[in-house]
Amino acid sequence: MTETMFNVSPLGGQVYDGAISIADYTTRHRSGLRGAQARSLLIEAGWSVPAHPNEILQTEDRGFVMALSQREFWLLEPTRDALSISISTTAVDKDVYPLFCQSSHCWLVVTGELKSSMMAKLCGVDLSDNAFATGTVAQTQMALINCIIARHEMAGHDVFSLFVDHSLAEYALEVLLDARDEFV
């Protein structure tokens, strides 16, 4: 099946500026692979792949590989528009299956010095600097919903990338903005 145009987010692609900023990156490109051969496939394709699960690693000029397990990887490409989407989902290679992260999850990027303090109102994992270093990922819960939180650098900023279920994105943004109130 061929590809088609895609640039819609339930959050409208908005940016909420402030001491802590929250930006909707949902329409940025991302894809995923899962399977025993996924790692070697990515390395062959020239990606820098993290050594361990729950780590995120940047590949210069392309984006990030986020490892969610030994065999599951998400490719995040913040500079590339999600111009296309595919529903062709059969194996791309022997035991490597494409994932659906472009349409299953929304992507929010949180910046600002006090972002860990804000997240402490929503999340039971310690996301402070000394406990959650750059390059780490937490698959956890935020305000009672599942959430993947990755800490990495982006355009010179220390950021949290948050991935939440597409159907819960509006809820997630509401609680984030509410938690952010006291810091703005």
Binding site: P53, N54, S69, G124, Q139, T140, Q141
Partner: peptide, 9 residues
């Protein structure tokens, strides 16, 4: 896989 977490997860 994910280390120590609250039992609620």
């Amino acid at each position: 896989l994910n280390g120590p977490r609250n039992i609620s997860e």
